[in-house]
């Protein structure tokens, strides 16, 4: 086991909201091109942990993070780290679809525009490719200039995923991306994620146990700020090591 196998390595990550310790020393590594599901009851720290991976917590006042998190061997909490560049490398999708109040095209091209891309033809190609990979191209190809807000929730969420894909990230973080969607839209996003795994490393927070067991390669179980157990999903859901994991996945609490 050599360290460079991992795309993300985190060691002894503590996070405090003011004085409250929300993460109590989490060490967790991620293999490239795998889907890892973070599960656990509300308030266990899984979303907080997810947000440390692209420093989204920096935006919340009075947050302190200790420990180290490395992306491709580079400390992302180093003072030299450019957080804008980091968030391109490590994109994020949220629970509520949050398209900008622009056209579908401009939503997806947003990251390319702010990075100064001028080549219109290349931009068209990237927008189409991203929408295709996000499995929403056929839904929107005839109305790219319409407002993204006119789409259904499931389509909006896939456009948001296309927006992340357009800037060619290495890692995609998803925070309960389907919990606001109907089962059909959720299923579309699930199968899309499994396809995206060929190119990207995916970390997903989910409250849906079946979703975690269906799509992820690894599962990490959090409880009260601690990482209780991390392992192969097929092992976690058939014979976990820890009783707390067993109790949670079997619906005994949470």
């Amino acid at each position: 086991m050599t360290e460079q196998n991992f795309i993300i390595e985190s060691k002894d990550v503590h996070l405090y909201y003011g004085k409250k310790e929300a993460l109590k020393g989490v060490s967790l590594d991620f293999m490239p091109k795998e889907i890892t599901a973070l599960i656990g009851p509300s308030g266990c720290g899984k979303s907080t942990y997810l947000r440390t991976l692209n420093r989204m917590n920096d935006l919340i006042p009075d947050v302190t993070v200790t420990g180290t998190i490395k992306l491709n061997g580079k400390d992302i909490y180093s003072p030299k780290m450019d957080t804008v560049a980091l968030r391109k490398e490590v994109g994020m999708v949220f629970q509520q679809p949050n398209p900008f109040p622009f056209s579908i095209y401009d939503n997806v091209a947003y990251g390319l525009n702010i990075s100064g891309m001028k080549d219109k033809q290349k931009m068209d190609e990237i927008v189409e490719k991203s929408l295709r990979r996000a499995a929403v191209w056929d839904d929107v190809k005839d109305k790219l200039n319409k407002s993204a807000l006119s789409l259904s929730g499931g389509q909006q969420q896939r456009v948001c995923i296309a927006r992340v894909l357009a800037v060619e990230p290495e890692v995609i973080l998803l925070d309960e991306p389907t919990s606001a969607l109907d089962p059909i839209s959720s299923a579309k996003i699930e199968s899309m994620l499994v396809e995206l795994k060929e190119r990207y490393t995916i970390v997903i927070v989910t409250h849906n146990m079946q979703q975690a067991s269906r799509i992820s390669d690894k599962t990490a179980f959090f409880l009260q700020g601690d990482l209780i157990e991390m392992g192969q999903t097929r092992k976690i859901f058939t014979n976990p090591k820890e009783q707390a994991t067993e109790d949670y996945i079997s619906g005994r609490f949470g």
Binding site: M209, F237, T238, S250
Partner: peptide, 8 residues
């Protein structure tokens, strides 16, 4: 949709 011990 049982898992783990329940499934076993």
């Amino acid at each position: 949709q049982p898992v783990s011990t329940d499934l076993r």
